[in-house]
């Protein structure tokens, strides 16, 4: 049975898609979708870097450097940001799929396809962040994350960072992953959650600690 990878269907009709994926023997359209997503991630992160989002650290040099020098280091910084974005996208695709492959018996290819959907969600989230940044909202204070509420409840930076990585989109991803794993691996709901949640939590914690890792470097 043929299964054609269609991103939006995979996101909004997971029931149908997951069962189709399970039954399918031939899967078409992976490379196309993969290329599309990687290209889109390149685009989104380039736009974000172009607006200078995230380069606050370089603003300190505005009096020391000539305009040309200032712009040049911003470009280099932006290149680094784009590389980071694409790198994370690739990791999200293959590394998380690897983890699931280890803990379930599902075919790796199908897990990668599931991760295509997850990547789509991630890219939507990144794209939506851009206008909020331009309006003056910090990474930590994005409205679709729990960071805002966390800022009102505590002063602890670590906790705030952690809760700011938990967004509506991430919750959506977790639910989606749990669903697909359940259908593809035919394991019980409880076990699926047990597999899905830890890896995501792990990622969130790493992301929360990331600014501090930087300082060490």
């Amino acid at each position: 049975m043929f299964f054609r990878v269609q991103l939006l269907r995979g996101l909004f009709q997971p029931d149908i898609c997951s069962h189709q994926m399970k039954e399918a023997e031939h899967i078409k359209g992976i490379w196309k979708r993969l290329a599309l997503l990687l290209f889109t991630s390149l685009l989104i992160f380039s736009i974000s870097a172009f607006f200078g989002i995230g380069n606050e650290a370089l603003s300190k040099t505005i009096y020391e450097l000539s305009p040309i020098e200032f712009e040049t280091i911003k470009v280099l910084f932006g290149v680094g940001q784009v590389i980071q974005g694409v790198f994370i996208s690739i990791l999200l695709l293959y590394l998380q799929a690897l983890y699931f492959w280890v803990f379930t018996a599902v075919v790796y290819k199908k897990l990668v396809i599931m991760q295509l959907f997850i990547l789509t969600i991630y890219l939507i989230e990144q794209a939506l962040s851009i206008p909020f940044h331009l309006l003056g909202i910090d990474q930590v204070s994005l409205p679709f994350s729990f960071g805002v509420i966390a800022q009102y409840l505590t002063e602890n930076e670590l906790i705030i960072n952690f809760f700011s990585t938990i967004t509506l989109f991430k919750i959506w991803s977790v639910i989606l992953q749990a669903h697909y794993i359940k259908v593809l691996s035919e394991k019980s709901t409880q076990i699926c959650l047990l597999i899905v949640i830890p890896i995501n939590l792990f990622i969130w914690i790493i992301m929360a600690l990331f600014p501090y890792i930087k300082v060490l470097l």
């Binding site: 910084f77 680094g80 990331f210």
Partner: peptide, 12 residues
């Protein structure tokens, strides 16, 4: 050059 690219890579 690498330093600045690196800083961008490791940003936020």
């Amino acid at each position: 050059i690498l330093r600045y690219i690196g800083r961008g890579f490791l940003s936020n």
